[in-house]
Amino acid sequence: MISYTTLADTDLVAHLKDGDKAAFTEIYNRYKGLLYIHAYQKLRNQSEADDVVHELFAVLWTKRNDLVLRTHLSGYLYQAVRNRIIDLISHKKVASEYMVSLQYFIDHSEAETDHLVRANELRALIEKEISALPPKMRAVFELSRNANLSHKEIATELELSEMTVKKHVNNALKILRGKFGILAYLVYISQH
């Protein structure tokens, strides 16, 4: 009967490669505490340190046939834990940056969406009031606003004087300002 507690690491690795569960158990018992302390010192989180160590030993068992040691077993295990810690920290950093980015997007898109909804509602109300203007005034105002025609071009198209066109535009703006205040004027200006 082999006494695994007295075997050197190299002998334990040889037995491990042969699928010897007792050799694996001895390696686990020999190094799990030290590896956990090392992981905990870096991570400052018991659960994460535990996971790193257990994951390492799970991989050690499943990939035991491919195990190639370029150093002592202890050096290999410490390096493996270190690599897992680095991976975990970089993953947490990426996840954290993603969450910050996502929160920024949520915060700003909600404000932007709210702004667009309000602007669309205001635009719809203004359109409704424009459609309620007297027909000639509405035609002049829409040509001025939608077609971006000058007063002279509108006068020519509708066979009116420039002064009448100007009066219709000013009266339309006065009516809209009376209903919506300065916002209507600003919306009117922003669309030109």
Rank of each mutant, 00 (worst) to 15 (best):
I2Q: 14
Y4E: 07
A8W: 03
D9G: 05
H15N: 11
H15V: 03
G19F: 08
G19I: 13
I27M: 00
Y31I: 07
G33R: 11
I37H: 05
I37Y: 05
H38Y: 11
Q41I: 00
L43S: 10
R44T: 02
R44S: 11
R44W: 02
E55K: 10
F57Q: 01
L67C: 11
L69I: 09
T71H: 12
L77W: 09
Y78D: 02
Y78G: 01
A80H: 11
A80T: 09
N83G: 07
R84H: 12
D87Q: 10
L88D: 01
K93M: 08
S101G: 15
D107H: 07
D107C: 05
S109L: 09
E110Q: 13
E110G: 04
E110D: 08
L116A: 06
V117H: 08
V117Q: 09
V117N: 09
A124E: 15
A124I: 11
E127S: 15
E129S: 13
P134G: 05
P135I: 03
R138A: 10
N146H: 13
A155G: 08
T156Q: 08
T164F: 02
V165S: 07
K166T: 05
K166C: 01
K174V: 02
R177Y: 01
A184Q: 01
V187H: 09
H192F: 10
